[in-house]
Design a protein around this nucleic acid. Structure first.
Length: 645
RNA sequence: CGCGGAAUAGAGCAGUUUGGUAGCUCGUCGGGCUCAUAACCCGAAGGUCGUUGGUUCAAAUCCUUCUUCCGCAACCA
């Protein structure tokens, strides 16, 4: 092995989320790699955990009337429990609220600062308080207003520490170019390269607007700052190994692979390596970004009620079957579709027919012809050709795994099963036994057993318990020792005796879970969810409501905005001298014909904003859910300029 | 013209670097077999390789036109 230490990570999951299939997918891929690494005898460290800092958590806890830490404890425990139920073999579950993590982050901050990569800036102007974001002069609307929310930006309001990300642009590009596999799949690497080539801005890495985070080291004597969530979160990958504290496991660094979802690619592929360079730490070998899961071809969303609950699926169909399905079904990096049909097909066809049934055939034949005895001594003598064919497939496997080509890995791993099933047909043991070819028949059973053993060993990382059940029937256990013997050294199986057993993968004839609820129920449910909202939103007085000027307007002109997916450029008459120009993000749901000469509700006293270079002097009221957007219109035509209240 | 990717059998995909008989999995149809979970094995049908033009003895592959889809960026007042 090229590296005898294997460090494998998942992201730390944000505790404001509920665990969904995406979390499960990342974690299962990582678990598979970790299990395989252990099986081949590598010293392995597998990390997962939770990200618990940030304003959102602080607010969420407050709303529920809980202490922030208590709230974080609660949700973090839910993730941990889920992974335990999912048989995830993590070596450490890190929490960003762990004392040694926080100490490590502070240490890193000092190191970066001493290196000159962090500077404090009183950032003159252009900080939007409500968006908590800085904007360069060029992006501001009319030289003052926030391009995001249109509110006035402030000049000296917020001070912040900055990380000199811009200084690492060339070094990052060198890394991408010199390490073709640093970001997988390759298409994502290209994306990152293009982005970095476009120029990097320095990164604001502290906040003063909330305090639920890691404080700066005491030596800075600057207590109002807490570290920004990405610096805090990303550092977990090394603090988990003892960075900045006992350094106990730092010899696992650099990571063999960071597994992530494609949504957080930029943080991992740009910020993280830059931080590491600043800390003079080596860079990870691979960053693997996987795609999304859809449900029956549709995007999953709460309002559609079609979110896949991984626990529910695992309970119904079997955890390891589900693992197999997720890894086999989609090419790494691509989006995958979850449907019970596809899952059932995989279980019945791949697992039941090809694998489980092969074990049954062996049990049947050995039972009928040899009272269950299976011996492998003569396998090579009679079936060399088949053994060689199997070996060709096995030899291809390992590189695929560490290149994250799990679907190809499993596809290739199934070839030996076909070799076995075909051999039975070809040599017809039921005829051989009648002809007195006892040795040949025994050897054929030995061949099947050998193939089952090898496939089980190579499948173990994906289906740990199931494969152990199989090899137990073949008289041994899966461990690094048996792996070494049977896979690496090609040793023969010891003689064993088979026993009848229930099929490993009973056929599934009907969907086990009730599919998507009827439309009406879904709507009810989403209404319920919406009802919850008011509890969380502060009440306002009527005066405050009247601060918003809403008016009826008629769209007198409408045209598409070129190069924009969402924007329409409208002229709306709201009873003033001239129609207002409004840039509305409704192109995906409304064409220019749909909206021309129709009436809409306009927010008339919004500060002007600039969108893709065009001035917008108002906004249209609309309701948006996952199915798209719907304008709010007067039920009957009203004269333009009519106030709404 | 912001950057990039993709379009191949009913479905999902490989093949394109380096032009030379279009392949895999599932599904469908036909046959075989009985050790086995209506499982297994063999065979067949099914594709003008998105569109236009070109280079070439020869194009899914190289160049060109257009169309559609998808990422990223931008943007959602």
């Amino acid at each position: 092995m090229s590296c005898h230490k294997s460090y494998i990570t998942t992201p730390i999951y944000y505790v404001n989320d509920v665990a969904h299939i995406g979390h499960a997918y990342t974690t299962i891929i990582a678990d598979t790699l970790a299990r395989y690494a252990r099986l081949i005898g590598e010293d392995t460290f597998f990390l997962t955990g939770t990200d618990e800092h940030g304003q959102k958590i602080q607010e969420a806890a407050k709303k529920r009337g809980k202490a922030t830490q208590a709230y974080a404890d609660e949700i973090s425990a839910k993730f941990k429990t889920l992974w335990d139920e999912f048989d995830i073999s993590y070596d450490k579950f890190i929490r960003t609220t762990d004392a040694d993590h926080m100490a490590g982050v502070q240490k890193a901050f000092s190191v970066m600062y001493d290196k000159g990569d962090i500077y404090k800036d009183a950032y003159k102007g252009h900080y939007c308080i409500s968006c908590e974001t800085f904007f360069p002069e060029t992006q501001l609307v009319d030289g003052e207003f926030c391009p995001d929310c249109g509110k006035s930006t402030s000049i000296v309001e917020e001070e912040s520490y900055f990380f000199k990300l811009s200084a690492y642009q060339d070094k990052l590009l060198d890394w991408y170019k010199n390490s073709p596999d640093c970001i997988l799949p390759k298409s994502k690497r290209n994306e990152v390269i293009r982005f970095v080539e476009g120029g990097l801005n320095d990164l604001s890495i502290t906040r003063t607007s909330f305090d639920w985070g890691v404080k700066l080291p005491k030596s800075f004597n600057d207590p109002k700052h807490v570290m920004y969530v990405w610096l805090d979160a990303l550092m977990n990958y090394v603090t988990a190994l003892g960075y900045g504290t006992d350094e106990k496991n730092m010899d696992f660094w650099p990571a063999r692979v960071h597994l992530i979802g494609k949504d957080i690619l930029r943080f991992h592929a740009i910020y993280w390596p830059a931080f590491l360079m600043s800390l003079d730490l080596p860079l990870p070998k691979h960053i693997g970004a996987h795609g999304w899961w859809t449900r029956n071809g549709e995007k999953m969303s709460k309002s559609k009620g079609n979110v896949v609950n991984p626990k529910e699926v695992a309970d119904a169909y079997g955890l390891e079957n589900f693992r197999y399905f997720m890894l086999r079904e989609v090419p790494f990096g691509g989006d995958g579709d979850f449907s019970q049909r596809a899952l059932m097909d995989r279980i019945n066809s791949d697992l039941g027919n090809d694998l489980g049934n092969l074990l049954n055939r062996l049990i049947g034949m050995s039972g009928k012809y040899f009272e269950g005895r299976v011996e492998c001594d003569l396998v090579e003598k009679y079936y060399k050709e088949e053994l060689d064919e199997v070996q060709v497939s096995l030899n291809k496997l390992e590189p695929m795994l560490f290149e994250l080509q799990l679907h190809k890995y499993l596809e290739e791993l199934w070839r030996p099963l076909t070799v076995a099933n075909r051999a039975i047909d070809k040599y017809q043991p039921w005829s051989m036994i009648k002809e007195g070819k006892t040795d040949e028949t025994m050897a054929l059973n030995g061949l099947i057993a050998t193939i089952l053993a090898k496939v089980s060993l190579m499948l173990h990382a994906v289906m740990p318990k199931t494969t152990n059940t199989i090899v137990n029937a073949l008289g041994f256990d899966i461990d690094p020792n048996s792996f070494e013997k049977i896979i690496r050294n090609g040793e023969k199986l010891e003689p064993f005796v088979t026993q009848k057993r229930e099929p490993l993968f009973p056929r599934i004839e009907e969907q086990l879970l009730v599919e998507k609820k009827p439309e009406k129920e879904v709507k009810k449910e989403s209404k319920k969810e919406e009802k919850k909202e008011p509890d969380n939103i502060a009440l306002i007085g009527i005066d405050q409501f009247f601060e918003t000027s809403l008016k009826i307007g008629t769209v007198v002109e409408a045209q598409e905005v070129k190069k924009s997916k969402k924007l329409l450029l409208l002229q709306v008459d709201i009873g003033e001298e001239k129609p207002r120009q409004v840039v509305a993000g409704i192109k995906e749901s409304y064409s220019t014909e749909d909206i021309l000469n129709t009436q809409v509700c306009v927010v008339a006293n919004l500060k002007p904003a600039k969108l893709m270079g065009m001035k917008s002097e108002g906004m249209l009221l609309a309701a948006k859910d996952s199915d798209g957007l719907c304008l709010i219109r007067p039920e009957k035509p009203k004269s333009v300029g009519t106030p709404i209240s």
